[in-house]
């Protein structure tokens, strides 16, 4: 059996006296897509940052791609991050910065190319390939700051994929997007699930965003895992009501899920 891509044991993360995460055990297998679901402040983004090694835990063990993060020095941790694609919750605020979309995606190749070496033709080919695959090829020469929020999010995913990662961490990739762009992002993530053998950890707090190819859903609440299993088993009326309050029901249809008022069904 393949070693898990992510393995967390007895993990505790604190901010002052407040406990942000308190997990006994969490695993993400190779080629698996897992959605972390929970209300704001549940510890979802903290978990992603722990896996990247930029949020040190108070105690416990974090293993990513077989490496125990607490044992890695600065250089080894930096090398490990080169094979982890990470898309943060919001693209950086750019103002008038004139970086083109192609240059932003090329950031994904920067660490891999190594220090003192410019990006090679092969790096730029991969950059262009991911822009095309995500349907953003026509934006390549535009300034990133001039794109819409949805376009920027796509470019950020292209940047993460240009790293040719073994693990993809997506932190609320549909936050603040309108319905049309939200659906396009779900389709993009679903395509990645189908076309790559990546382990994907997706964070969201809307169940409508969970792609049909998602293998497991993990419900987080106040830093603890409330449920972990297949989407249909975890996204039950009872679980959703205990998490978000009474009067809610869940609809499932062809791998997609939606929360509606209980009185409407």
């Amino acid at each position: 059996m393949n070693a898990p891509v992510i393995e967390l044991r007895n993990l505790q993360v604190r901010a002052g006296k407040r406990t942000l995460l308190d997990l006994d055990r969490f695993q993400l297998g190779a080629g698996e897509t897992v959605t972390l679901l929970g209300p704001n402040g549940a510890g979802k983004s903290t978990l992603l940052r722990c896996c990247l090694g930029i949020q040190p835990p108070a105690s416990g063990e974090v293993r990513v791609l077989g490496q125990r993060l607490s044992e890695l020095g600065f250089l080894a941790a930096t090398r490990l991050r080169r094979v982890i694609g990470y898309v943060s919750q919001f693209p950086p605020v750019q103002g008038e910065l004139p970086l083109t979309v192609r240059e932003v995606v090329a950031i994904g190749r920067t660490g891999l190319a190594g220090v003192f070496r410019p990006l090679r033709a092969e790096d730029w080919r991969i950059v262009d390939e991911w822009l095309e695959r995500l349907g953003a090829g026509h934006l390549a020469q535009q300034a990133f700051s001039e794109l819409s929020g949805g376009e920027q999010r796509k470019v950020m995913i292209a940047r993460a994929m240009a790293q040719e990662p073994r693990l993809l961490l997506l932190d609320e990739p549909t936050a603040n997007l309108d319905l049309g762009w939200r659906e396009r992002m779900v389709e993009t993530i679903q395509n990645l699930v189908e076309q790559t053998q990546l382990a994907i950890l997706l964070v969201c707090h809307e169940i409508e965003v969970i792609p049909p190819g998602c293998h497991r859903v993990v419900l987080l609440h106040e830093g603890r895992i409330m449920a972990d299993g297949s989407p249909e088993s975890v996204l039950s009326h009872q679980q959703i009501q205990s998490l978000y309050g009474p009067g809610l029901a869940v609809l499932h249809n062809r791998g997609r899920h939606a929360v509606v008022p209980a009185c409407s069904i």
Binding site: L52, I54, T78, R79, L80, R81, R82, V83, I84, Y86, S88, P92, I107, G108, T110, G111, L112, V115, R159, A160, Q163
Partner: peptide, 9 residues
């Protein structure tokens, strides 16, 4: 932060 997360020193 993105540069750090992408494995850049």
């Amino acid at each position: 932060e993105d540069a750090l997360a992408a494995g850049i020193h």
